[in-house]
Design a binder for these strands. Sequence first.
DNA 1: AATTTTCTTGCACGCGAGTGCATGAAATGG
DNA 2: CCATTTCATGCACTCGCGTGCAAGAAAATT
Lengths: 339, 339
Amino acid sequence: MEEHDAQPDPQTVTADDVATRAGVSRWTVARAFKKDGSISEKSRKKVMQAVEELGYVPDLLAASLASDRSNLVALLVDDFDNPHKLVMLERLTRILRAAGCGTLLVNMLGEDDAPDALLLASQRRVDAAVLIGTQFNDSIRQTALGARRVKKLIVFARASASPDTISIGCDDVEAMGEITRHIIARGYQRPMFLAGPDTESTRLMRKEAFLRLWAESKGGPAPDVVHLPRYAQTDGYNGLLAYLKSRPSAALPDVVICENDVLALGAIDAIRHGMGLRVPQDIAVTGFDDIPIAASPAYDLTTYRQPITQMAHALVKVLDGGSRADLVLPGQFIARSSG
Amino acid sequence: MEEHDAQPDPQTVTADDVATRAGVSRWTVARAFKKDGSISEKSRKKVMQAVEELGYVPDLLAASLASDRSNLVALLVDDFDNPHKLVMLERLTRILRAAGCGTLLVNMLGEDDAPDALLLASQRRVDAAVLIGTQFNDSIRQTALGARRVKKLIVFARASASPDTISIGCDDVEAMGEITRHIIARGYQRPMFLAGPDTESTRLMRKEAFLRLWAESKGGPAPDVVHLPRYAQTDGYNGLLAYLKSRPSAALPDVVICENDVLALGAIDAIRHGMGLRVPQDIAVTGFDDIPIAASPAYDLTTYRQPITQMAHALVKVLDGGSRADLVLPGQFIARSSG
DNA sequence: AATTTTCTTGCACGCGAGTGCATGAAATGG
DNA sequence: CCATTTCATGCACTCGCGTGCAAGAAAATT
């Protein structure tokens, strides 16, 4: 298969080739690609034409090696069970790409794997590592600070206690405020909270926020809290079902506040198919995240949408050397029929 | 914050540093890291000790530049609406990582974006580009063959007509055979097929397989086929609802065969909440993929599980220079209550 | 003990491009 | 028309490591 033009080098065309063709030096070629460019309009045009003719594409690898900016960020994910991760991945990859950044997806195999995953990322000289996970403890800091250090460690969609990380997330307190006001307005009296694992250094503030807000507004005994081992729909199902069955039917909650949508889906399944009760008439349910299927009529889940797009843009700003402070953005409450 | 040991270089420790410390040359250090290793046990130990002491980690970027093997593969995804992508991403990242490969996640913005996405990947010198998408036409071949070519182009979980790509997928024909036999065994008479976009060079063979198999087994008029613009749950909902409403109630299908689970979820929603009918008593539904939520009692979807794990392993084999032929693997039929 | 074979090690060169500095050319001023 | 500033361009050096080859050391052979 012949190419349109005479491609002198079928394998790799470097800046040198372009330089030769354009009749300038290699460095002039480099300059033509930088916007500030101390370069004359004439030679820039010559260069660009040669670039076109040869189909030159700069090698990002070599550029990274030479400049210690890789325009690569690592996305460390440890919870592929949650469809919301897919939403985050879509936004992050799109927006980072628009900002000229590639994304390295690293699968964290578990809590203990975080250091290894981070090391792997650092070997590729990523400009930053973004933690999009649920659990990782402080040992990750040691790694982050070690050898060929990761320049920036960013915790996405979680709060972080560590001073060495920058966290970008949604305002959990404000969000739970909306949810709490909502369920109070709807007259629910006996809420319970369905939470994920109780992690250490990085956590969601949702449970604490809800308990505090509920106590402030309604007082009385603190609502029950059930902690689950993971954030999977089956965990939500099993966990809530076990809890409900362990209670006398007179003492069942009338609303289940879930730490996220995945748990909420499991909760709804447990109420309907495990207990044979109705949602929301017998027990209402609220979630968090607004994953796509939450809008399905099968669940029609009341939830809170995280501002992922804004969070991703904030991430870009952080990468560009902007703010170094933790960031908390407002999301949007979504009222549906489940609670 | 002090480090445990005396770290001579806080920033970057290179193979040269290790060599100096171990009292050997830089190349001996490199050899210590290769398994074939023409190196004495003694100096290997010396090197390894120095590596430990200094916390040396080889720079994959420099290695890639020097060796033109990057151990990096690009994952090009264009359909983040489908939770099944999350399953694939989890498997691929885990298994590729175990095989020593990093994964670059590239968001394809649309059909026309495939060449750009591929170019982006090639700039990072990926060893292969894996297309995990739904739509991309032949223009991608041009790019793949262009300038700094992508060494391998692999189509994952789709069939491909192009001779320049290797496709790894599930055996759609066998799968549809199982589904067809199943619905025939259950006595359904009036199936219809709910399909995604009608793409060009790469496609699923599910529709064709089903129509052929049904004709062979039952004959009669060919079942209706509805094509949807995208593979999203709402598309499945709207598409099926419009179809069902356009028909006299006596001529409604008794089973809807969907090209994948996401469409099937939308179909079930449409039947239940749009039409007020029952699944499977009034209209049954089958899907394809076995995404996690298909197992939820809210849907309990009859479907076919793709052998993603095996497919990922096959991919590794292809990367290691194994087979160059297209590969079709058997999956597993999952009978549930929806159809 | 001399020689051949095998193993081990060192080294020049290249991968492709970025950075700072020095030189040449063009533009400005007197 | 010469002196001075500004701009444009070229060049050495570097980033960290891989590859092939040649020299040196050790082991095996006669």
